[in-house]
Design a protein around this nucleic acid. Structure first.
Length: 649
RNA sequence: GCCGGAGUAGCUCAGGGGUAGAGCGCAUCCUUGGUAAGGAUGAGGUCACGAGUUCAAUUCUCGUCUUCGGCUCCA
């Protein structure tokens, strides 16, 4: 008998050997049906693998990440089996799982290609193979045998993978006519897979290296129930409807022009209105937190970026310097604001009493992004950071860091981003060449971030190797209304730039000291943030942000004049109002303006004109009754205040 | 930058070797209306750009640009 410890710490005895599937069966038949894999002493195992000693066992279902991974990993094999059926001789690279689903990188034989339209055939074959409920069988194999097998198959991709594995740890998995090199784990048989969608096809470099061969990557997602696939497809549809590029065009927020250049957004009046609203909001919050606004030019001497280290790091892959005609001086389009702000710091000597100094700027920066990278407003070549740099004494660092976290919380609250996570990005200790500055300063900076997060009670994950080259950082990721994650705000601790720019302050001891810098951008970039906001709200912005807050709809042309009067009064009360005086019936005007996502529709006709009122209709809700014009103005002002109440003075 | 799609009216898209279409939008007129699409008429296109093949190219070929899905990258 062996003892199995379950997650609730209960211990059960089983005959030796036992499989996780048998353990599940002993608990409940239903669990046995749902369980997909098991975590045995911290390692994910096949359900059918024999446990021969005392162990801790966690049973993974669809609701566990490990369960889904097992499911999708087996699905990748199923896809490979189907592909091998249609394209014999295909070489298989790697077939891992991703957040939603899986992919397999394949090398098709002699110049054959798979097109989107071929995916359906493969899906069909996969379903057919799944229905056969073929057992998926694990087999341990020696390195030599593995090598021989894939040499015979002429699959040099797998040979390369095997050559890097240690003998004794190599396993194969077989199902039907298909055998793959794989660490596992896998489902007991292919019959678990009930619903399949191959989503797209793309090129991908072998092992992610652009010097390697380009393979064909096929992405797919599978589910244990048909209904789950349907829900997933509905979600995809919804995401498509919310695409900020589509809504941005519809709502006339921004545009791009080939004539201006790719990746260079043009903000249209309504988009500019929205963006300025966000900027004004953040300015007010920053004022409350003791920030000073500064303004710096869009270009800077190349030497400035040589000093900062950015030129060495990114110069080659950037927009190249602008050279002045007569003197041949070299200027760079500003790729970031920090060097300029460092120079502002240096404009005069500082006492320890001056610190912290908080310098904020909505600074537009230009970065060369590879053409294939550009994407709507989320990835552009010219964008505006809601940047600020805090210069402080080392003893102030942690407090300042915590205050920045507070500002980020205020923003999340104002915009109802309720679901967020935070990631601490540290340096990669294996790869010190990627970073500038001393190990000692890095240690200090990393410690400050970790402690500040702990003291704020922030739930964080930690990633090594994700730090910026000059310092570690804390990034905030929000989940939008569809559950998709977006990286927004960032806070970075930096001991290095102050050193490179030789920044100093005079301490109480009358000696020169080095300040510490915090780089921070709660929105990240205005472009990206607006894009996320559009997708999160589907363009139905909160009242305080809506580019047009109210539209007046005269019942007939006879009331156009009164409508204009209402609009003027409201605009004078800072309520952004327009008039729809088209020659259309009221039903039509209501429909069109609802679709334009304007929060309030004000209908005016004979009655309203006589009584100096408006008939108020709230977007998505319908008629909410008559109000005096002034009353409506206060009503809107109160609602805006309510949305931002307590967030700033 | 790399692999693979796409580019036709302001928008969404159909078409196809012989001088170009729909719906929506826009304009004008009729209608003057009460809470999600009233009617008529009309304007609007170098079919992304440049070469080539052809009697003839928007259509076929090549190149360029832009865009979309990925890959790589992201201070």
């Amino acid at each position: 008998m062996i003892k199995i410890t379950l997650p609730d710490s209960s211990v059960k005895e089983f005959p030796d050997p036992v499989t996780s599937l048998e353990i599940a069966q002993s608990i409940s038949p239903r669990l046995a049906k749902e369980v997909l894999s098991a975590t045995v002493d911290g390692e994910t195992w096949d359900l059918t693998r024999k446990i021969t000693k005392d162990a801790t066992v966690k049973l993974n279902t669809w609701d566990d990440r490990e369960g889904k991974e097992t499911f999708w990993h087996s699905s990748a094999h199923l896809m490979a089996e189907a592909i091998e059926f249609f394209y014999p001789g295909t070489k298989f690279g790697i077939g891992p799982t991703v957040d939603t689903g899986f992919y397999y990188d394949i090398d098709l034989p002699d110049g054959q290609q798979i097109a989107e339209k071929d995916l359906q055939e493969i899906e069909k074959k996969m379903l057919e193979l799944a229905r056969q409920k073929n057992d998926i069988v694990r087999k341990e194999i020696s390195k030599g045998n593995a090598m021989e097998m894939f040499t015979q198959k002429n699959d040099e991709l797998k040979q390369e993978l095997i050559s890097e594995l240690e003998d004794g740890t190599i396993t194969l998995y077989n199902q039907g006519n298909f055998t793959d090199l794989c660490r596992g784990p896998h489902l007991p048989n292919t019959g678990y897979i009930k619903a399949i969608k191959l989503t797209f096809i793309a090129g991908a470099y072998w092992r992610g290296n652009e010097n390697n061969k380009m393979l064909t990557r096929i992405y797919g997602v599978t589910f244990p129930k048909q209904k789950m696939l349907e829900e997933y497809l509905i979600m995809l549809e919804e995401a498509k409807k919310r695409d900020h590029r589509k809504i941005g065009k519809e709502m006339e927020l921004f545009t791009f022009s080939e004539a201006v250049g790719q990746g260079l957004p043009l903000w249209l009046p309504k988009g500019a209105q929205l963006r300025m609203q966000l900027e004004d909001f953040l300015k007010k919050v920053q004022k409350m937190y003791g920030y000073d606004q500064v303004i710096t030019p869009h270009i800077g001497d190349v030497k400035l970026y040589k000093t900062s280290g950015h030129y060495e790091k990114y110069g080659k892959d950037s927009f190249q310097p602008i050279t002045t005609p007569a003197e041949g001086e070299e200027y760079l389009l500003k790729p970031m604001n920090c060097p300029h702000h460092c120079e502002i710091y240096k404009a005069k000597p500082h006492s320890y009493k001056d610190l912290p100094l908080r310098m904020a700027e909505f600074g537009t920066v230009y970065r060369y992004e590879q053409s294939g990278e550009l994407h709507g407003l989320t990835r552009v070549r010219g964008f505006t950071q809601d940047d600020a740099h805090i210069f402080c004494r080392p003893d102030q660092l942690k407090d300042e860091f915590k205050k920045v976290i507070d500002i980020i919380f205020i923003i999340f609250k104002a915009l109802s981003f309720d679901d967020y996570t935070a990631q601490i990005s540290l340096r990669d200790p294996e790869n010190p060449a990627k970073y500038i500055g001393s190990a000692e300063n890095w240690d200090k900076a990393e410690k400050a971030i970790i402690e500040a997060c702990e003291e704020k009670g922030l739930n964080t994950t930690t990633e090594k190797g994700e730090a910026a080259f000059y310092g570690p950082k804390l990034d905030f990721m929000i989940k939008d209304a569809l559950g998709r994650s977006w990286q927004l705000g960032t806070i970075q601790v930096d001991y290095n730039l102050p050193e490179r720019f030789n920044l100093e302050y005079i301490g109480a001891d009358d000696n020169r000291h080095r300040p510490v810098m915090i780089h921070r951008a709660p929105f990240g970039s205005m472009e990206r943030f607006v894009a996320v906001l559009i997708e999160h709200t589907a363009g139905k912005f909160p009242l305080w942000l809506a580019p047009e807050q109210a539209v007046v709809l005269p019942i007939s042309e006879k009331y156009n004049e009164y409508a204009q009067k209402v609009s003027n009064i409201l605009n004078n009360s800072d309520i952004r109002t327009v008039v729809d005086d088209r020659n259309e019936k009221i039903g039509r005007k209501i429909r069109d303006n609802e679709l334009k996502r304007i929060p309030y529709l004000l209908i005016v006709g004979e009655k309203e004109k006589d009584e100096e009122t408006v008939s108020v209709r709230r977007q998505g809700e319908g008629d909410i009754g008559l109000q005096q014009i002034g009353e409506f103005a206060r009503f809107v002002a109160d609602e805006v205040k309510g949305q931002l109440s307590g967030l700033y003075n």
